[in-house]
C-alpha cells in the first residue's frame, strides 16, 4: 500500500520540527546565518528556493509519468505542482526583497560591476529574470491539472500541455538556483 500524501507531509513536517528544535537548542544558528537582517532574508530566500526545488523535482517526475500516460498518483501531482507554485511565489518575494541589499551602495552589485562586470551583466541579469518564469509555468499547470482533473489522462496531447510547463518551470528553476548559488558564493549580501 502506498503511503498517503497526508502521511508524507506529516512525517516531513515532524522531521523538520525535530531537527529544527535540536538545532535551535544546541547549534550556534546566529553564527551560521549571519548577524544582519539581510542575511536572514537571504537565508529564507535560499531555503525557499531549496524547498521549491524539492517540490518541483518530484513534480517533474510525476509530470513525466503523466506525459507518458502511466501516472497513478494524479492527486499527488496536483498538490505538488500547486505547492511548487506557492513556493515559487514565496521565493520570488524573498528574492525581490533581498535584491534591495544586492543593489545597495557597497553591496554585491557594486562589487561585481567593479571587479567582475560580466557576472552582473550576464549571469545575474539572466538569473533575476528567468526566476520569474517559474511562477507562470507552475501556476498555469496547476490550473490545468485542477480544472481538467483526471480526464487529462485519456488525452495524449492535453497530457503534454499539462506536463511540459512543469518541465519548463523546473528548467528555469535549475538555471536560477545554480546561478544564485554561484553568485552568492562569489559575493553574498
Amino acid at each position: 500500500m502506498e503511503p498517503s500524501l497526508a502521511t508524507l507531509l506529516l512525517v516531513t513536517l515532524g522531521a523538520i520540527a525535530i531537527v529544527g528544535l535540536l538545532a535551535a537548542a544546541t547549534a550556534p544558528v546566529g553564527l551560521l546565518v549571519g548577524s544582519n537582517q539581510w542575511q536572514y532574508i537571504s537565508a529564507f530566500h535560499g531555503l525557499g528556493a531549496t524547498v521549491f526545488m524539492i517540490g518541483a523535482t518530484i513534480s517533474v517526475y510525476l509530470a513525466w509519468r503523466l506525459y507518458v500516460g502511466e501516472l497513478r498518483a494524479f492527486k499527488d501531482l496536483k498538490w505538488l505542482v500547486s505547492f511548487s507554485a506557492i513556493m515559487s511565489a514565496v521565493t520570488i518575494s524573498f528574492g525581490t526583497w533581498i535584491y534591495i541589499a544586492y543593489r545597495a551602495p557597497g553591496g554585491p552589485r557594486t562589487y561585481f560591476i567593479e571587479n567582475l562586470p560580466a557576472v552582473h551583466q550576464v549571469f545575474f541579469e539572466f538569473k533575476e529574470f528567468i526566476a520569474l518564469f517559474t511562477l507562470p509555468m507552475f501556476l498555469a499547470s496547476a490550473f490545468i491539472l485542477w480544472r481538467y482533473g483526471e480526464t487529462l489522462v485519456q488525452h495524449r496531447e492535453a497530457r503534454a500541455a499539462a506536463s511540459i510547463p512543469v518541465l519548463l518551470g523546473w528548467s528555469y528553476l535549475i538555471v536560477a538556483y545554480v546561478l544564485g548559488a554561484a553568485i552568492t558564493k562569489l559575493r553574498g549580501v
Partner: peptide, 19 residues
Amino acid sequence: VSGLKFPTGGLFAALFAAW
C-alpha cells in the same frame, strides 16, 4: 474523441496568459 471535462480553450487561456 477528447473526453476532457471542459473544452481545451480554458487550458490555452492559462498558457497564453502566462506567455
